[in-house]
Design a protein around this nucleic acid. Structure first.
Lengths: 220, 220
DNA sequence: CGTAATGTTGAGCGCATTCAAGCCGGGTGG
DNA sequence: CCACCCGGCTTGAATGCGCTCAACATTACG
């Protein structure tokens, strides 16, 4: 994935991937408490990560798709602090972290790449905090949809159509809302002609209206 | 800060710090949009970091104190994506990121240390997401107080007494609450004999009750 | 000492939640 | 093929938590 490498360096990168691993839908790639050994690059499939509080409650911290890296949470304490659950059958590249550190000492571009991946995750979470801390239900869902469709588009999918791989409850957990609120908000969007929704199939009719909801009447 | 280094390695680490910089209360160490060059280790003082949405709203993403590192958000795009504001006169070590990357190629312990710092920030933010996504006002404030006092205690301060360096509004922004709600929740804690509050001076009378609020009636 | 910033408290409101009932679609087995 | 079931989803009604708006108190600071 990192750019600007020599052929020799690319060979090294190949060495980094110890194995590929298939994850069945509904099963976990890693769990809170498990020993941390590797980062995982998603080749295919779709994941959610979630943290749990002492009492039963849990919070979905993100949804990850092909090309994204998960497992960064495990570095600090040598143990994972969240669960990664496959929302559809998936395949990942297992990249032992020792190897990553070793190679990134030799290959500057890789070192830089690793740092950027971690920084990107920090910045992404800032955005989620902004969402959770200051947005109303409609803004949250609109932001969520725009983010999803943008990431899918970057992977060659439609700009206006998407299939949700997660339930209303999982969306709600991520957005800090109850599943009923997510459902109602979808319905309101449909009434207003912003989207069409048939179960998990979503078609965005009017992207501008969605953006307007996210960023209400930008005061120019 | 990193442990397990030889004397020679420690000298290298010293090289990492290009300069010290004093930040006056109320001014920014860096701002959203500014070019990223360095990470900053806080020597003394107290900071908040905040992100802003397109429209005016902003969200405090964290409060940082001595020994903590800020600026990680800037790595991914070579520009900062949040503001760091000093809540009291402060001094930081400026550590140019180029130097950090260079040195961490030579000193394994430093490399590992940098990775852990970034991972720790990711995990911290998971905790904030859990708070913002699933806790009620009392739980949020209790969690906040326990976290603050724990970090202060680790720095040699009291386990039960603290001085808030931020306003109710800043606490509210961090916790996803309005300042009035923060104030009211403080008052409720006082009524219940959990804490004493005199403006920004807080004394925790009953830590267990605070923990009980955070983790309601743990079902054993 | 006066002014502005910060904090507290009250009253009423509104958005999201809770609780509850019913619907839809996919899968299974008769 | 249809009947049935179950998980996921939708919708309604009532409740309540945190918000808004407002007045006032207190503190910090020039």
């Amino acid at each position: 994935m990192p750019m600007g490498l020599t052929a020799a360096e690319l060979d090294l990168i190949d060495d980094m991937v110890a194995a590929r691993r298939k994850i069945k839908r509904g099963t976990t790639l890693f769990r809170n408490g498990e020993k941390f050994t590797s980062l995982y690059a998603i080749r295919t499939g779709f994941f959610k990560t979630r943290v749990a509080s002492e009492d039963g409650r849990d919070q979905v911290t993100g949804f990850q798709m092909a090309g994204e890296v998960i497992g960064l949470d495990g570095i600090v304490n040598d143990h994972h602090t969240c669960d990664a659950v496959a929302l559809e059958d998936a395949e990942v590249c297992v990249m032992p972290f020792d190897r990553i550190e070793e190679l990134s000492r030799e290959v500057n571009a890789l070192q830089r790449h690793v740092h950027k991946i971690m920084s990107r995750e920090i910045v992404r979470e800032h955005g989620v905090m902004l969402l959770l801390g200051s947005m109303r239900a409609e803004e949250r869902l609109a932001t969520f949809l725009l983010n999803l469709v943008q990431r899918l588009h970057a992977r060659g999918f439609s700009q206006s159509e998407l299939v949700l791989r997660m339930t209303r409850e999982e969306i709600g957990s991520f957005l800090g809302l109850k599943l009923e609120t997510v459902s109602r908000t979808f319905s309101r969007f449909v009434e207003e002609g912003i989207v069409e929704v048939k179960q998990r199939h979503v078609r965005i009719i009017n992207t501008d209206m969605l953006k307007d909801i996210v960023n209400p009447k930008a005061c120019n």
